[in-house]
């Protein structure tokens, strides 16, 4: 499936170095399927020990139905758990825009067809402020032109060129494409000294 653009309301999760343990605590990974992970997203930041609601964007009704997540620096650092982006995707997230992302997290998002785009600190602040003030405004992220349109804000979004191409060509769903090199893979398997 080609992913050329995505649009939707935004949800703002502020903070640098938000690790995947915070996105999904380890105890929710005792599953053999990703299907039920929606409720696990940011669980310990959304609920206190007695199950009472804490103040968190994912609990904030103004963000109901949002599909573009806005974040700060090094989002998704730490554990390689794909359960983290899987939980976000099942909550409704289709794209993530931030200052920077951890590498394994980006790899996981890419293989799930979730584009990640980077913007400057000033730009993310402008986007976040607007999304917080006007949560009903719809953002569009055009992958081929790498352009973000958000009301009166128009910005360039930085994407890894290879990941951008993988989205546009549909090759983010990588297994079939990798299998095309079958004869080369067999050759290399024989050729390696181990």
């Amino acid at each position: 499936m080609k992913i050329e653009n995505t649009s939707g309301k935004c949800i703002v999760v502020r903070g640098n170095e938000i690790d995947t343990d915070r996105i999904i605590p380890a105890r929710f990974m005792k599953v053999v399927s990703f299907k039920g992970l929606r409720e696990a997203a940011f669980y310990d930041e959304r609920y206190d020990a007695d199950g009472g609601l804490k103040t968190h964007p994912f609990n904030d009704e103004q963000y109901n139905g949002a599909s573009i997540l806005l974040v700060n620096k090094n989002f998704g650092c730490g554990s390689s758990r794909e359960h983290a982006p899987q939980a976000l995707m099942r909550w409704g997230i289709k794209a993530i825009i931030g200052e920077s992302f951890a590498e394994i997290f980006v790899g996981n998002c890419t293989s799930m067809g979730i584009p990640t785009a980077a913007v400057s600190a000033d730009d993310i602040e402008a986007l976040m402020r607007k999304a917080e003030e006007q949560p009903d405004v719809v953002m569009s992220l055009d992958i081929s032109s790498e352009e973000i349109r958000f009301g009166d804000i128009i910005l360039h979004a930085g994407m890894n060129p290879a990941i951008r191409k993988a989205m546009l060509s549909g090759s983010w769903d990588s297994t079939e494409i990798l299998l095309e090199a079958d004869s080369l893979i067999r050759w290399l398997d024989n050729e390696l000294p181990y």
């Binding site: 794909e82 982006p85 996981n108 293989s111 990798l178």
Partner: peptide
């Protein structure tokens, strides 16, 4: 290197 589950699939 560490990978996610979709890459384990691959």
């Amino acid at each position: 290197l560490g990978v996610g589950t979709s890459q384990i699939r691959d």
